[in-house]
Simulated scan of single mutants.
Amino acid sequence: MPGTLFLIPNTLGETEALASVLPEQVQHITSQLDYFVAENAKTARAFLKLVNASHPLAKPLQEITISELNVNTPPAALAGLLAPLLAGRDGGLVSEAGVPAVADPGADLVRLAHQHGIPVRPLVGPSSLLLAVMASGLNGQSFAFNGYLPTDAAQRTARIKELETRSRKEKQTQLFIETPYRNTAMLEALVGACAPGTLICVATDLSLATETIRTQTGAQWKSQLGAGKAPEFHKKPTVFLLLGQ
């Protein structure tokens, strides 16, 4: 019998109080595993140290195996990452932040696990995308996540207009993210490309003490930026949402 692949959520940023975002069951299951797949082994160890503070690990940290899966992992290496599970060992896929396999390279591993008959068990934890939809006041019945938009200014503007048109036509909330140091450029691009009445939400540092969430029309954001009152979101993880009216 193969082991189970547990999909283990992480916090959305630095915190010493795991209980505020991760259920006790998630911490307990994590503490009992000795094999993990993570995007970065160093940050995964830091996460396990936090778990250990309230739920002692079943094995010393130095005896826990952490294999890396990131954008540099060749597809041919995925099978090897599942070998311990096929041999009957339970394992955990842990995210850098939030939930695994959503805007995360772990999705390919999960698909391969299904192909090999490995049970997959998702565990409850914070998702910045769903938290942003919840708090935005935009359409939560129909929404789409679009990942990163183009970095080229002209291409980005064209993509924003395309998403706005789709949003207005289908009444669908459009979500996307940006590299944190480009947050200001993204908001300025949204204000410049969207119609004055389009609703734009900026959700920053979700679930953290520094969390800020603001939904305004494009015209209101333009006025705020013109007055030099940009959000305090430089280098902070942010989700952007829009809904065309």
Rank of each mutant, 00 (worst) to 15 (best):
M1Q: 12
T4N: 05
L5H: 03
F6C: 03
F6D: 00
I8L: 09
I8Y: 12
N10R: 03
T11V: 13
G13Q: 06
A17F: 12
L18H: 05
V21H: 12
V21Y: 14
L22M: 03
V26F: 15
V26S: 11
Q27T: 09
H28P: 01
H28M: 14
I29G: 04
I29T: 10
Q32H: 06
L33E: 00
D34Y: 14
Y35R: 05
F36L: 10
V37N: 07
V37R: 08
A38T: 04
A41Y: 10
T43Y: 15
A44F: 05
L48P: 05
K49R: 15
A53S: 13
P56A: 08
P56C: 07
K59M: 15
L61C: 12
L61D: 04
L61P: 06
E68K: 11
E68N: 00
N70C: 04
V71H: 15
T73H: 06
P74G: 04
A76M: 08
A76Y: 10
A76W: 13
L78A: 06
L78H: 08
L78D: 01
G80F: 11
G80L: 06
G80T: 11
P84H: 04
L86I: 08
A87M: 11
G88S: 09
R89W: 10
R89L: 13
D90Y: 04
G91E: 14
G92M: 06
L93S: 05
P100S: 09
A101Y: 12
A103V: 05
A103M: 10
P105Q: 06
D108M: 09
L112K: 03
A113L: 08
A113F: 05
H114T: 02
Q115D: 08
H116K: 12
I118K: 02
I118R: 00
P119A: 13
R121F: 14
P122D: 10
P126G: 03
P126I: 00
P126T: 00
S127A: 02
S128I: 07
L129N: 02
L130F: 14
M134N: 15
A135H: 10
L138K: 01
N139T: 01
G140Y: 05
S142V: 09
F143E: 02
F145G: 02
L149T: 13
A153H: 14
Q155Y: 13
R156Y: 12
T157W: 00
R159V: 14
I160C: 02
K161C: 05
L163N: 04
S167F: 00
R168K: 08
R168I: 13
K171P: 00
T173V: 02
T173Y: 01
L175P: 02
F176W: 14
P180D: 07
P180G: 09
Y181Q: 09
Y181M: 01
R182L: 07
R182Y: 06
N183V: 04
L190C: 06
V191P: 00
G192I: 07
A193M: 03
C194A: 10
A195T: 09
P196D: 00
I200V: 08
A203W: 09
E211Y: 07
E211W: 03
T215P: 01
Q216V: 13
Q216L: 15
T217K: 01
G218P: 05
Q220E: 12
K222Y: 01
Q224I: 10
G228N: 06
K229Q: 15
A230F: 05
P231Q: 02
K235R: 14
V239Y: 04
F240S: 00
L242I: 10
